[in-house]
Design a protein around this nucleic acid. Sequence first.
DNA 1: GTGGTCTAGACCACT
DNA 2: GTGGTCTAGACCACG
Lengths: 89, 89, 89, 89
Amino acid sequence: MTALLADIESGRLGPGDQLPSTRELAEQYGVASMTVRNALKHLQQQGHVQPTHGVGWFVTEPPPSGQDLEDRVATLEREVQELRTRIES
Amino acid sequence: MTALLADIESGRLGPGDQLPSTRELAEQYGVASMTVRNALKHLQQQGHVQPTHGVGWFVTEPPPSGQDLEDRVATLEREVQELRTRIES
Amino acid sequence: MTALLADIESGRLGPGDQLPSTRELAEQYGVASMTVRNALKHLQQQGHVQPTHGVGWFVTEPPPSGQDLEDRVATLEREVQELRTRIES
Amino acid sequence: MTALLADIESGRLGPGDQLPSTRELAEQYGVASMTVRNALKHLQQQGHVQPTHGVGWFVTEPPPSGQDLEDRVATLEREVQELRTRIES
DNA sequence: GTGGTCTAGACCACT
DNA sequence: GTGGTCTAGACCACG
C-alpha cells in the first residue's frame, strides 16, 4: 500500500487527480477495504490526499511541509498589503 | 442541516411557514438534493414539518412532545435486534 | 422489486432467512442500489425484514398485520424485557 | 418545440445522442416543464426518442415510419439475396 | 417550479 | 464484504 505514496511522489499522480475508488484499490492490492481506508487516512494526515464524500479521493496540492507556516503567513500578508496598495492607487 | 431544526425550534420559523424549496436548501447548505430530502423526512417523522406535493414544505403545529410512536418502535426494534445478537454470541 | 415481497409471502423466504446482499439485489433487478435500499426500507416498515449493519438483511417473524402502533410498542417492550432476563440468567 | 424534431430529422441529433435535460429545454424554449414533457412524449410515440429514468432522453434508431414495413422487408430480402450471391462467387 | 423517485457510483461504519 | 449515507443530476407527478 505504500505504492500509492510512491505514485504520488513520483508524479504519476498529480495534484487534483482522482484516485481509484476504495473498492478498486482494495481489489487491486488484495486487501480489505478497511486497510485501504486506514492507509488513505494516513496519507491524508500527511497532507497528500483529501476525500470528498460520495465522490472520491483526490491528490492535494503539494503540502506546505518544508516551509514554515509562519513564513507562509508573513509572505501572504505582504502580498495582500501590496495588492491593496495597487488597488488604492 | 440541523440548522433548520434550530430555526424551527428557536421560533425563527413558526407553524404554517413555508420552507425554502429543496433545491434552494441544497444550494444553501452545499449538499445534494437527496440529502436535503432525507433530512426533511427525518424532521417530518419527528412531526416538525410536512410536505405538500407540488407546493412545498411547511412547518407544522408544535410537534408531539416526548417521542414519536414510530421512532419508539424503531428504537425498540433496534434494541431487540442487538439483544438477540448478544444472546447468540 | 415487489417480487421480493412475493418471495417472502409465498414462503420461498422464511423467517430468519438472509436476503441476498443489496448489491446483488440491485444487479438482479437491474436497478440502482439506492432503489433497492428504499424498497427494503419499505418492507422493513411493514415488518417483513430487518437489517443488521455489516451483516445483512433478514426475514423477520410474521409481520404485525393490522396491529396498532401502540400495541407494537407494548409487544416490543415485553420482548426487550424478556431478552434482558435471558441475558442476565 | 418542433425545433427538436427538426434537429433530429436534419441529423444534428443522431441515434444514441442524449437530449438536453428537460429543465434545460424548458428554460431554452421558455416553456413549462410540462409542455416539454408532453412534446417529448409525443416524439416518443412517433419513435424518435426514448427516456431512461434518472438518466435522460436519447434519440432512438431511425424509426420505420415513412416507409411501408412490407416494402422495408422486401428491400432487406433483396439485399440479403444480393450479398449472398456476392459471397458465393 | 414544487416535491418525489431514480441512476451510477463514491466514501463511511461495522462485523 | 455487508449495510448506510452521500454526490450530482436526471426524469416523473403535481398544482
